[in-house]
Simulated scan of single mutants.
Amino acid sequence: MNGLSDVRLTLHSQELAAGQEQGMREARARNAPSCLGRWGLFWHRLHTRKALLELSAQQLRDVGLSREQARAEGLKPFWRL
């Protein structure tokens, strides 16, 4: 290989690594597994929001949420972030 090809491969691998890092940040931001597609993400949101509405006062304290915050998040439609 010539030097130009080596530079291209290095830059391409850095771009791939940066893209994976961005995808991981997005997954953490939405608090869902990164392997989920759109419908899987909707399903995940629906069930986790339903579960949030069923938490006791002690469990909400452990999570660090008030009843009002949990209710506001739990009543959001599944398609909203």
Results as ranks from 00 to 15, higher is better:
1 M>L: 09
2 N>V: 09
4 L>N: 14
5 S>K: 12
5 S>W: 10
6 D>G: 13
6 D>L: 15
6 D>H: 14
8 R>Q: 12
8 R>C: 05
9 L>A: 15
10 T>N: 08
10 T>W: 12
11 L>R: 07
11 L>N: 14
12 H>M: 10
12 H>E: 15
13 S>R: 12
13 S>P: 02
13 S>V: 05
14 Q>L: 04
15 E>T: 02
18 A>V: 04
19 G>N: 06
21 E>A: 14
21 E>F: 11
22 Q>G: 03
24 M>P: 02
24 M>F: 09
26 E>A: 14
29 A>I: 02
32 A>K: 00
32 A>W: 00
32 A>L: 00
33 P>R: 00
34 S>C: 11
34 S>K: 09
35 C>I: 05
36 L>R: 00
36 L>I: 08
36 L>C: 03
37 G>K: 04
37 G>C: 08
38 R>A: 13
39 W>P: 01
39 W>A: 01
41 L>R: 01
41 L>M: 07
45 R>F: 12
46 L>E: 12
47 H>N: 07
47 H>W: 07
51 A>E: 04
52 L>Y: 00
53 L>D: 03
54 E>R: 15
54 E>H: 15
55 L>D: 01
56 S>R: 03
56 S>G: 13
56 S>C: 04
56 S>W: 08
56 S>N: 02
56 S>I: 05
57 A>W: 03
59 Q>N: 14
59 Q>L: 09
62 D>F: 04
63 V>T: 12
63 V>W: 10
64 G>S: 11
66 S>T: 15
66 S>V: 13
67 R>Y: 10
68 E>I: 11
68 E>P: 11
68 E>L: 14
69 Q>L: 15
70 A>V: 00
71 R>F: 05
71 R>V: 12
73 E>L: 13
76 K>Q: 15
77 P>V: 09
79 W>E: 15
79 W>K: 09
79 W>I: 13
